[in-house]
């Protein structure tokens, strides 16, 4: 015994299911159509020590370069042995024993080739806890508590760099010399389009995410700007060391410690959180108050 209403409901759901089918298919296609393009950018021509202050060791190898804004330091050569051991233990299962992206039983191209990427890149990935990856097959490695200490991360980058020395070295920004106002303007032009103007990060295309900047130490900020990890574009050639230093200063002061003079910062979600608070707390509480005010029926 079916009433017309049930029949109508059935018809509607069948029609909507028929509409849903192609839609789901389309989603699948849209998701599947993502594959690595042949235009993968290489990171092998990073900024070289072109600045005036270059420091070499007794063998004539550059161990530090930079200027009053950022000093780039190569990890100490003494760490190479330790780094080798750590790499074989933690990284070689994917990146191969020679760090060339070819695991023992695999083929080339399955995992990134690390040779010649420069110490800053390696240090960023290991020190931010993204490597060793929680799930090596995921599109994106997620920031988490680092498995290796700062010292060990330096050692790994020292060993990888020893295979084919390259740049950039690990940047140490001199925040005292930075101009936070210039940093704010540069941040708005270069960084806010992904990380949001409040530095909270957000979901980007496909399953990629821009991370929150709220707890990133200054060295990692500078490393990320200079090396462009994963989907982040690299800012080399368009930002001077002084400008990078300004941005790092703005991120580590105003973004990470905003002095919200107007009360709680509402998680930096912007108008979404504001609307939620306005409706749930504002209208909601007032409607409850209205419930008390309006009822007079005892």
């Amino acid at each position: 015994m079916t009433s017309p209403l049930i029949k109508r409901c059935l018809a509607v759901s069948i029609i909507s299911l028929m509409g849903l089918g192609p839609v789901v298919l389309f989603v699948g296609v849209a998701q599947a159509s993502y594959k690595a393009t042949p235009y993968q950018t290489s990171r092998k021509n990073a900024g070289t020590p072109n600045s005036t202050m270059v420091k070499k060791n007794s063998d004539g190898v550059i161990i530090a370069y930079g200027n009053s804004s950022i000093t780039y330091r190569a990890p100490s050569a003494a760490l190479v042995t330790l780094g080798d051991a750590l790499f074989q233990q933690n990284c070689a299962s994917c990146h191969g024993t020679q760090a060339n992206g070819v695991p023992a039983n695999g083929t080339a191209g399955a995992f990134p080739d690390l040779v010649g990427l420069g110490p800053a890149t390696i240090n960023f990935w290991v020190d931010s806890g993204r490597m060793p990856a929680a799930n090596p097959r995921s599109i994106e490695a997620i920031r988490r508590v680092p498995r290796l200490t700062h010292h060990q991360a330096l050692a790994v980058s020292a060993w990888v760099n020893s295979l084919s020395p390259s740049y950039p070295d690990i940047p140490y920004p001199h925040l005292k010399n930075a101009n936070v106002a210039d940093g704010a303007a540069l941040f708005a032009l270069n960084c806010a389009s992904c990380h949001t103007i409040e530095g909270d990060g957000d979901a980007l295309a496909m399953s990629t995410f821009s991370p929150s900047l709220r707890k990133i130490p200054s060295i990692e900020v500078a490393e990320a700007i200079r090396t462009g990890p994963a989907n982040m574009p690299r800012f080399t050639g368009n930002l001077s060391d002084a400008q990078v230093n300004d941005i790092v200063k703005y991120v580590t002061t105003e973004i990470q410690h905003p002095n919200n003079p107007g009360g709680f910062g509402l998680g930096g979600l912007g108008p979404v959180a504001e609307g939620f608070v306005g409706l749930a707390f504002g209208v909601g509480i007032l409607a409850l108050a209205g419930f008390w005010v309006g009822e007079r029926d005892d």
């Binding site: 708005a188 032009l189 389009s193 949001t196 103007i197 409040e198 108008p271 609307g275």
Partner: peptide, 19 residues
């Protein structure tokens, strides 16, 4: 003050209008 002044070439991600 956190958003900074408008400049047609600048943009922030996650910009929504008021509710």
């Amino acid at each position: 003050w956190q958003f900074g002044p408008y400049d047609a070439a600048r943009i922030s991600y996650a910009v929504q209008p008021d509710w």
